[in-house]
Design a protein around this nucleic acid. Structure first.
Lengths: 407, 407
DNA sequence: AATGAATGTTAAATTAATTTACAAATAAAT
DNA sequence: ATTTATTTGTAAATTAATTTAACATTCATT
């Protein structure tokens, strides 16, 4: 629902300019007052006032001497990103991962633990709570943890805190994870679904970091989802389920999906689909090296060593993924489409085939103006994204930030 | 490409608040100073200052006495929308329409003229220029025309001013209509493609006027396109071609389209497709009343009088349109999906079947939170939208407005 | 008839950015 | 080497927008 904007007063001006400076300070490691003045159009005196406040608050540091235009000396200004910590948690079907990050997204600890989501939420939630408690206790004497971001497999109705359409997660749709965790800790807990978290991580720290107008992050694991970042902000739609491309039809006469739809992209383009198709294809390809082991990684290595079955299955997979991407491109007209999730472990050969499939089905003028790449984030992009949800909540809200700074 | 925000100063505050007031004044017919103060959160003194300026500028009128809260007297304030005129033009394959509107979207004249776009742009452009000249001349002594909005069939690359993928428009991709018209008149000319224009008209003046967070306007004529309005603004994407759902795949093994893609929605869901399928089906339905006349309107009336062939063809059409809508809903998660174009002349029976098709393929929680309706705008919504493009340019840009007001 | 609340205006107060002036540092010109 | 110009940063005065506060009207309520 469209909400009416409020009027602006002087305090809002201050807040806007200070938030803008924080945003800029996040984007480069080191700034100078003069550089900030140029970038914002604000006068040097204004910048000085604000930065000196930031210094008083302990929000920024002056770090040595820089040489600016015409080699004039100037004072380096840097956000004290390591002053606080946030926790990022990724919940998945058979594991969860948890990381400790500073406000610049630097990782200080990381851990993966196996769980069995099929066994219901009780044990898994207990384990997650224990790990969070551990991190909180360990850091109590040192850096303050100011937020917890949780990424869960989507879709997820934002206002209710429940998981929807997760048939592999029996029992999880009955509870509100958000409330469960909110009441367990005295630290603010923020939620996002995994593809959105990965998308925001990509926007902030990917190869084309903070340059994209519309970024679509296509997240392929046991399902297919996507996160949409428009001008740096997640686009969520009415109920928060925008980007659910796994349940868009790419084959009108395709099989019925649990979501009610037919020929869903997810039916063709998930690791589950890969394994299923390999399994089904073994009869016709008895000589395939996948005969004994058809795990996802085996399929990828078989594909890269020219196994006939793997080649056939993955090319079919990519045909449909190509359609999915073409649909997203013609719908959203993004400048950046990033592929993430288990699938990218298959390596560059897969990307090349995918690209040629997409190119074939798009107008050249569109294809040539759309970047299609694998995610460049090596480590667990979802956990990083989960932490960024918490980081952004704090750093994009001046009054919340002041609260943490005790101002 | 993501562009960096600039800092805010006092002049910006003034501009923001004045623009906000204009926005509110547009949305209701009559306001009071106290009402504007409540709506914006600004103080009554501030509102008085701004409104009194607006009175000086001749931008608003005080119109009599209203009775506000607790029945206290107050002064009605109303935007002088009839002070200026804008021209809206809709270019189509075999006709163009042109309308004269005031700043509230009230129509003062309207005309449709046949053209043959197949014969190239020369004659058509000449006719359009002539009609624009007529309106300009006729109004020279009375109301000033401050903008011309042109809606052309999409897609359309914004920065180049050329029409792309319009195989039915030979020669039109060679010229820039924008430049042609820009140099012909001394009035600012603004461009938009037809689905976007209709979408913005719907957002402003449709049944759910100015309430929608994400509105998708699906425009079905000889092709299928859509316009996307997020928080009252058109979402255009990287090249301005967002919403090109006509060229999204709904049937992976479907026929090759001119765009390069396979099984495009447009192949199944356009009036061209309707006529084609009726034509092809006549052999099996010799008793159909469509035997002699298979124009679009005949097909619709045959459908409504239970003709077997029309029924079969339209139900197939709606099956695919249903997939298209489901895809859009799962991708954008809009709160409002509006169907427009020739297709809605088929009436409520078609809508009911479409709705049940969409309902069948969406999760109930999503379907129940998404409004799906025919456009409520009776008259030519594209021309109205074209004029709104011009109106919005002026009313959403204070300095442009001041220029027109000679301030 | 007295009281209280809503509407609108006016003048003073407030406050954030700007303007102006200045000092320090350094490059470029002489 | 000296002078000049430019960049960076700070400090005080100014500007300009909203807010605050005080007041007059108007009308409902008691």
């Amino acid at each position: 629902m469209y909400t009416r904007k409020k009027g602006t007063n002087l305090l809002d001006v201050q807040e806007m300019n200070r938030s803008l400076l924080i945003k800029l300070l996040r984007s480069n490691n080191v700034w100078t007052r003069a550089g900030l003045a140029k970038a914002t159009g604000l006068k040097r005196a204004t910048i000085s006032n604000i930065i000196n406040d930031f210094l008083d608050w302990g929000l920024v540091n002056e770090i040595g001497i820089l040489y600016g235009e015409k080699n004039r000396r100037s004072i380096g200004i840097s956000l004290r990103s390591d002053k606080y910590r946030v926790i990022g948690v990724r919940l998945s079907r058979n594991f969860f991962s948890i990381g400790l990050f500073d406000l610049a997204g630097v990782e200080y600890s990381y851990k993966v633990e196996k769980i069995d989501a099929l066994a219901g939420p009780d044990i898994a939630l207990k384990k997650i709570k224990k790990e969070i408690t551990n991190l909180v206790e360990k850091n109590r004497q040192q850096k303050k943890i100011i937020g917890i971001g949780i990424a869960i497999p989507g879709p997820y109705f934002r206002n209710e805190g429940r998981i929807v359409l997760m048939t592999e997660f029996p029992g999880w749709d009955k509870i509100s994870i958000k409330n469960e965790l909110k009441k367990a800790f005295d630290i603010p807990v923020y939620f996002e679904h995994d593809a959105n978290a990965a998308a925001i991580a990509e926007w902030w720290y990917g190869t084309h970091s903070r340059e994209s107008g519309t970024l679509i992050f296509i997240f392929i694991t046991e399902g297919v989802g996507s996160g949409i970042v428009i001008d740096g902000n997640l686009y969520r739609g009415n109920l928060g389920i925008a980007g659910e491309i796994g349940h868009t039809t790419v084959k009108a006469d395709g099989p019925k999906c649990e979501c009610g739809n037919n020929g869903c992209l997810e039916h063709y383009c998930s690791t589950i689909a890969l394994v299923r198709e390999v399994k089904n294809g073994l009869i016709n390809y008895p000589q395939s090296i996948l005969n004994k082991d058809y795990s996802v990684n085996s399929i990828f290595s078989a594909f890269n060593s020219e196994d006939k079955l793997a080649d056939k299955v993955i090319k079919e997979f990519l045909k449909f993924l190509g359609y999915g991407i073409v649909n997203v491109v013609n719908s959203f007209n993004p400048d950046l489409v990033i592929i993430g999730g288990e699938i990218i472990q298959a390596g560059p050969k897969l990307l090349e085939i995918l690209k040629s499939s997409v190119k074939e089905h798009l107008l050249p003028e569109i294809y040539n103006n759309t970047i299609l790449e694998f995610s460049s984030l090596k480590s667990d992009e979802v956990v990083l994204g989960a932490s960024l949800i918490a980081i952004n909540k704090v750093l994009q809200n001046l009054s919340l930030l002041k609260e943490h700074l005790n101002i």
